[in-house]
């Protein structure tokens, strides 16, 4: 069963309060080598049939209209997850 991954990030020019909070926690742990943290989302869409071009086009459309809000987020990647039989990813 193919899995299609959609990755969404808050727009780079916008404040990411969630990332800011995580960055603050790292700083308090003494991890001063990290100058910034941004938190995004990863969706995994599983289908029965083949992940062909038509399906990927549909996922891209859904990624732009439902899975993300273009006012506040960017779709950074859409790809098919390659997992060989018996292999854990």
């Amino acid at each position: 069963m193919p899995t299609i991954v959609v990755e969404v990030m808050p727009k780079a020019e916008l404040l990411d309060p969630q990332g800011k909070a995580v960055a603050g926690a790292l700083r308090r742990l003494g991890k001063t080598e990290f100058t910034g943290v941004r938190v995004g989302k990863r969706f995994e869409l599983t289908v029965e049939g083949p992940a062909d071009a038509a399906l990927l086009a549909e996922v891209q459309e859904l990624a732009d209209t439902v899975l993300s809000n273009s006012v506040i987020e960017d779709v950074t990647d859409v790809y098919v997850l390659e997992v060989a039989a018996g292999e854990t990813h």
């Binding site: 808050p10 916008l14 404040l15 309060p17 969630q18 909070a21 809000n69 006012v71 506040i72």
Partner: peptide, 17 residues
């Protein structure tokens, strides 16, 4: 209303978290 595109702009997590 912003998600339905009846109003422009968007709303994100409060600055102070």
């Amino acid at each position: 209303l912003t998600e339905a595109h009846l109003l422009e702009g968007g709303l994100i997590r409060n600055e102070a978290g």
